[in-house]
Design a protein around this nucleic acid. Structure first.
Lengths: 243, 243, 243, 243
DNA sequence: TATGAATGAGCTTTCATTCAT
DNA sequence: CATGAATGAAAGCTCATTCAT
């Protein structure tokens, strides 16, 4: 029994090790040659397994690509969440800075793969990446932003998705500028100004302090909106209890 | 003589018509299937010509792709310049608004093709689009921004490329949000808020004017934070009940 | 009338000039790339005419090749006959020496084309060269050989086709050896020993008379040939110095 | 274990059988249509395998051709060496007769393929057969001839490559004559006279018996060597002047 | 008649996928 | 389950030939 259990465990571990090898190799090859340019045989070779074996893990090259994407974005999301969890500061802008720094660096480091993701979005009907990965990833920002609004650090009338697009759009383009223009070794040094600018931009545009001449209104509006949210929570609680 | 001249004209016209037909067909097919997925035979069929004919106009599939890209970006640049030329207003923010409006709409309308351009950037070594197209296109923004600085409407210490990345990055992401979330018919209506926000963002962050100081919010802030705490209590209650 | 006649003449001359241009260009291209490797477009370009024009002179690429071959072998035959006609000597071996010298040089100079002829013999069913060209060409040898028999210089029991095969076979192989081994500039000098050997071989084997032992001759002949070579070196040195 | 060994054996055998099938099919198709005319698909069909399989054995059509040539000439060489080894007679002319008989028959039987080999020599740059095959093959003759000289059966002053060209050139042309003129069934009967003639030709022309006892060659030899030295001096003078 | 743009059949080669071992 | 040899559909591209001008 014990032996069998151990074997099963070993078996399972072996499978997982193999699957990880496939995913790693696939990711490398996909980055290097793109989806169409990647050869399954090369992935197999790099994973040190037979070509046919891949097909006992994934139905097709497209499925494999999907799995690689899944893993990649899930990893990013976890990392981003970990970054946010590790920040002790409670202030929105400090937390945003951490997120911006993390994201910018990530985008630069994983530029090839992120480009690949976007490349697949439209063209290849087989591998159209479900938006969920991205949505999940940017949820970190969304949560942070809402909390910033809740804490009164951000204007209540700021539209979340617009702010999100500014944040991620500007950072992605900045990443491209950085990797194109700059020496690789100086990437890190170049990132700080971009991040700082992003923060000051958010402060200037989304910061609560800069709201209209009628400051009372904004403050009152915020209170009002909080009461609205509270009311909504009451409603949903009510619904649940009535089931 | 007259006949000959007419013939030559007809000849030339026919060639140009054919070349345009090829480019149009190619663009459509490339958008639909991406570079690797596009079949030369389909392009030929859609252009109503023989397959071999394409190769008397373009050396290879990659060359054709390049020509399509060239034509596309050159067209965009000309349009953008035309838009700027047609604006009578001299103020930076009014002109920026026009550019933003034009770019946002363009990105939405040509989303597929722009994505395709970016997709090619890395993977396909043969068709690596020369950066010059893009650089030429964004030069419209650069010129406008520098003029805004010269006119004293923008801070002198603003970094051009960072501002540019914010502008184009945010707009591109916004375009994606718009086309994904919204009904196609309501795209236009959705664009205005994004553009307005972009302008006000530039005013707030890059504008030269000094911002007014903020009044005392402390009392209201205290109320707000009490509501926050209340809301959190609700949340934890909610969680407990839902288990 | 006169004008018309002149025009007709000019017309005809123009046609012939064009046909010659085509044949010359075709021959060059066929030699350079072989039959399959030759492109009709290149032939047209080199002949300074349109591609389609070729097809008003020759039904197909294969027909053109045939015409080139025809012209080539007919030319060779005429040349060989001219060589024989120009020889005043009546003796078989002297005449054979002239023929051998001519043939060996011809085979070396036209090696590419002769190889091409043989290449077509089997493989390309379309362009199977009729043997008649060759038969016509070697008829010069046949006639000479028969006359040598009639004159009593050659054994009556010698088999013509065997002698012919020895003659042409040995010379063709020698030509290959010469062009492979030797420096191009020294081809001419290398040909004489081969020709001499061929003559002495025919004397020894097909000659009617019994040869005297005269052993001294062979050694002296060798000395003589060395002196010949020395003389040639003098000549070339003389030429160079006289520039 | 035994099973595994058997399997391995079967495996290997199967591979070799398949490779042989490819080579055989390729040779047949190449002979039939020439290199350019041969279609890979037909080779695959005749070998009863998939088209792609060929490319897992040979990099390209040209490589396949090369392999076919290699195998063919290596086979010929081995056969020729075997023939020579099986001859008990020690006399040069008896051994030469065996070689001539073997070669003539071989050339007739493999006429198509030999022609194909020569056809490739020039035109197709990709498949230019390395001369080594031929050189290796004719080495059998060279060895035999040198031994004949050593044994005193052949004149010492005979030039090897000239004799070789006479031998192979005459036989190849004779082979062509035989296969063209004669009924296939009578080929064999026709070969003997050609071989006999070749032997008697070698006896008459290269045989040592016709060499004089040459009593005092020493003096002449000295003259000869002096002339050689003189010639070399001229060469060096020539070189110096041409710089 | 001369032209050369247009054609499309047909080529070699690739590679995702299968399946016998 | 793992393997990798075998497959064959499908692709880009060439070029002899045609035909409208």
């Amino acid at each position: 029994m014990a032996t069998k259990a151990v074997n099963l465990e070993t078996q399972r571990a072996k499978l997982e090790r193999k699957e990880r090898a496939i995913l790693d190799a696939a990711r490398a090859v996909f980055i290097e040659h793109g989806f169409d340019g990647a050869r399954v045989s090369e992935i197999a070779r790099r994973a040190s397994i037979g070509e046919g074996t891949i097909y006992s893990y994934y139905e097709s090259k497209a499925e494999l690509m999907l799995a690689v994407l899944q893993q990649f974005w899930d990893g990013l999301t976890l990392e981003a969440e970990a970054v946010m969890a590790s920040i002790k500061a409670e202030g929105f802008f400090e937390r945003l800075q951490a997120l911006a720094q993390y994201h910018l660096n990530t985008v630069i480091v994983n530029a090839d793969f992120i480009n690949l993701t976007f490349a697949l979005r439209r063209n290849n009907s087989e591998v159209s990446v479900s938006r969920d990965h991205l949505r999940h990833y940017v949820a970190v920002f969304d949560q942070l932003f809402r909390r910033g609004q809740d804490r009164g650090e951000l204007r209540k009338d700021a539209v979340l998705w617009q702010a999100r697009d500014v944040f991620y759009g500007a950072l992605e383009y900045s990443a491209r500028s950085i990797e194109m223009t700059m020496d690789v070794n100086r990437h890190l040094r170049q990132q700080k100004p971009v991040v700082d600018q992003m923060i000051s931009l958010f402060q200037a545009h989304y910061g609560a302090q800069h709201q209209a001449p009628e400051p009372d209104n904004s403050a009152l509006d915020r209170l009002s909106s909080k009461l609205d949210q509270l009311s909504e929570k009451f409603d949903s609680l009510d619904k649940r209890l009535s089931r």
